[in-house]
Amino acid sequence: MTARFPPRAPDPRKAGIGLRTAHFEALARSRPALSFLEVHSENYFADGGPSLAWLERFRADHAVSLHGVGLSLGSADPIDREHLARLARLAGRIEPALVSEHLCWSSIGGEHLSELLPLPYSEEVLAHVCDRVASVQERLGRKILVENVCAYVRYASSTIPEGEFVAEVARRTGCGVLLDVNNAWINSVNHGTDAMRFIDALDPSTVGEIHLAGGEVTADGLVDTHGAPVFPEVWALFEKAIARLGAVPTLVEWDVDIPELAVLLAEAAKADAILASSIERASRKAAA
C-alpha cells in the first residue's frame, strides 16, 4: 500500500497532547509545534464524515498516536474481530506512529462494561494475554504498545508483581510498553506498593511512550480522573522514570473537564522542560 502521509515519528524530547474535538479549530489555526497528537482510536471508527476528515488533516502535519480503550486484551471473551477490523482500517487510513491498548479487560459474556478493569497477574493470565497481544499484532501487521492500568482492587489470585507481568508480556510478544506514570503512582499509594519498583522491572528498551495525568484524592484513595493537573508527586516520579529509561515520547492526558488549549500546552511544556533537563544530565554524565 502506498503511503498517503509523510512518515512522522514523535520527538522523544518533546511532549505530545491529546487531540480533542473542543480544540480542533484552535489547533488548526495556531498549528503549534507538537511531538505528536494522540486520539482514542474508537472515536475515529466512523465510516466517514467530519471526525475522520479532521484527523486526516492533522495527520498531514503531525505524528499521530492511536490509543485504544476497547480491545479488551485480557478478556475471557474472544477478541472482537469487528472491533479489531475497524482498528486495522483506521490504522491503514491514518498511518499512525504509535498504536496502543490497555492491559486490562472490559467485556464478558458479550456485555461491554466501558471501563478498564484490572486483571489477576498469574501465569495462566499472562499466557492468555500474550496470545492475544500476538494475535492483535499479527492482524495489524505492526507492533503495539500495552499500557499498565489503574487497579482500584487487587486479586487474591495474583502471583506475579505487576511490573514483572508487564515486562514479561513485552518480552514474550515483542510488543512495547506504554508506561502510565500516574497509574503506577496511584496503584502504589492505594495499595502501599513501590512505584519505582514497578518501573525498575521494565526493560527500558521496550518503553515506547509515557502517560501523565491528573487525578483526585477521595476517601477511598486516589482516583485517576484525567480531569485535573498532574500531581506534583507524579512529576517527581516521571523525572525518576526518565532518568532510568531515557527520554520517551510523553503525553499529558486530559479527558474530562477539558481546559483551554493553552492550559494543555502549558502542561506539555512542563513535561518538555523535565525531558530537556534529563537529556542534558545524561549527556553531561556521558561526557564526564
Binding site: 480533542r20 474535538t21 473542543a22 482514542h40 472515536n43 464524515g49 478498564l116 480531569g227
Partner: peptide, 14 residues
C-alpha cells in the same frame, strides 16, 4: 464533529 464518547473510557469518575 461530535465530541468522542470514548474519551471517558480511560478516565474514572471520582
Amino acid at each position: 464533529a461530535k465530541a468522542g464518547q470514548n474519551d471517558c473510557g480511560t478516565a474514572t469518575h471520582a
